[in-house]
């Protein structure tokens, strides 16, 4: 118990710093969000046009209403699981300030994690409720009945948390790429776009050819976005949800161990220039 309290005594100040940063730059955050949500609205209009141009009511098991929920919950999930601690690691490696981090008596990934959680707290509070409420009101108006289901929603929150963990450690691994590439802009563009495709954020995996979809469903990328969104939508049975969350936990562990391994190797190789 005292150990746990000690743990939070060390890391909570990082969260507080994150919150303060976020409060200071909240106008920036709102502008950024409006710019990003444009892509979700484009998807919304494109899918509406697709359904309007066809006599079919469903495509690969998705109705128009499902598709709209899919688009906006995918946006929300992508936003909430987004992690950019990696960028900071990259920058610190390049400018050498990682050296001070290494002499601190705390673990580097926990520092980033708590700092990021703090800075996300405000944005989550601002974005989560409006999007979920908007989606549910839309569903209610279209179908004429309340589709909001508490067990699935809670399972979504669980799956979302695991997805964030995977994203965090995946990006920590990626952050170490700064050892090899000086500029992370190009590689992160490649990473972002490939991840968004492989995780089903551009088009639901069910729309892809069956063998490809089967492979992608198993890879860690599906755990980032597709799994939580499908759980939210109630597309999976409880048995399947158990399997999917189990798979997510497996990938979380794998990413965690991988990041530790890379960290250990990287520390040996690290040479900070100047001083």
């Amino acid at each position: 118990m005292t150990k746990l309290r000690h743990f939070f005594r060390i890391y909570l100040p990082f969260s507080r710093a994150g919150i303060q940063e976020m409060v200071a730059y909240r106008a920036n955050f709102i502008c950024f969000l409006i710019g990003e949500i444009v892509s979700a609205f484009i998807m919304f209009f494109v899918w509406k046009a697709v359904f309007a141009s066809s006599s079919q009511q469903t495509f690969n098991g998705f109705t128009l209403e499902d598709m709209v929920v899919y688009v906006f919950i995918t946006f929300l999930t992508g936003y909430l699981t987004y992690s950019d601690g990696a960028f900071a690691i990259g920058e610190e490696i390049v400018d050498g300030s990682i050296a001070t981090r290494m002499i601190r008596p705390c673990s580097f990934d926990m520092c980033f994690l708590f700092h990021e959680l703090g800075s996300r707290l405000i944005s989550i509070a601002m974005i989560f409720v409006p999007i979920v409420a908007g989606v549910e009101i839309y569903r209610c108006v279209i179908t004429g009945s309340v589709r909001f289901d508490i067990p699935h929603f809670l399972l979504y929150l669980l799956s979302l948390t695991v997805a964030y963990g995977i994203s965090f450690y995946f990006n920590v691994c990626y952050g170490f790429m700064a050892f090899f590439f000086k500029n992370l802009w190009g590689t992160s563009l490649i990473k972002e776009t490939l991840t968004s495709f492989l995780s089903g954020a551009i088009v639901p995996l069910a729309f892809l050819p069956a063998p490809l979809a089967a492979v992608l469903n198993f890879l860690p990328f599906a755990s980032l976005s597709y799994t939580p969104v499908m759980i939210y939508m109630g597309m999976y049975s409880y048995a399947e949800i158990a399997y999917r969350i189990g798979l997510q936990l497996f990938w979380l562990l794998a990413m965690f161990l991988l990041s530790k391994l890379i960290w250990r190797c990287a520390v040996k190789r690290l040479s900070v220039q100047g001083g």
Partner: peptide, 9 residues
């Protein structure tokens, strides 16, 4: 490589 990666991205 930076340029190539940006363009490829």
């Amino acid at each position: 490589t930076d340029f190539l990666l940006g363009a490829i991205g």
